[in-house]
Design a protein around this nucleic acid. Structure first.
Lengths: 110, 110
DNA sequence: TGTCGAATTGAAGAATTCTTCAATTCGACA
DNA sequence: TGTCGAATTGAAGAATTCTTCAATTCGACA
């Protein structure tokens, strides 16, 4: 399986690149959650959520276990929180940068 | 601009979700680089690279400055390396997990 | 000014990903 | 067994992203 590393990385990030999937991962950081609970917190159709959960499952970042009539999802690895934290840091930087830019634009046009 | 945070996060990750863009960010971690140099290291058409650089520029994660007849790109923020490191850690975990799974499958069928 | 190389852009088709609907699976429970 | 709720799947069209080509911009330099 000679998948180059940068390709695997790109797929990994693409897997994160969807609002519903992000929300699921964030919710799961507080611990395992049943699909029904996820559904209650995220405004999305059940079938759509299922599709997004399938993407997460396929990548291996979450696990699903059936408990009676419901299915419970959990983060597979521990470090997801770290990643999200790093992302948040950069994102904050970027947004601040953009705000400064916007501020400059406003000055220029004033 | 009421872009919800999880939406901004998703866009951020989607921006990272392309092999060429990943390679560019990795190369830029060693310092600023001219487009020509990037082009020499990444097997891709000039116009395609330009398109991917445009995506990175639009997101604000890199800056471009013209120097004479060439254009030099650099990382805009400092924390990108951290992010990549966190991603690498998770990715390693995931890949190891998958290998274990594969090993199990092999045992089962043997 | 004219021309060259470096890089970018616009346009268009190809490829991928999303969303939604209907149908299906699976366990619980009567 | 029959039925219900929870969740998933397959299929199909919509939307987005990629790739490639031709054309354009921009500075350097003759």
């Amino acid at each position: 399986m000679p998948v180059p590393l940068y390709q695997a990385k790109a797929e990994f990030f693409r897997m994160l690149g969807h609002p519903v999937r992000i929300r699921v991962l964030e919710l799961l950081q507080d611990g395992p959650k049943a699909v029904r609970d996820l559904l209650a917190e995220i405004e999305v159709e059940a079938s759509n959520l299922s599709a997004q959960l399938a993407v997460l499952r396929r990548s291996g970042i979450v696990t699903a276990t059936r408990e009676g009539s419901t299915v419970v999802y959990a983060l597979a690895g521990a470090d997801v929180a770290d990643l999200m934290k790093a992302a948040r840091r950069i994102l904050t930087e970027l947004l601040v940068g953009q705000n400064e830019l916007l501020a400059q634009l406003r000055e220029d046009s004033a």
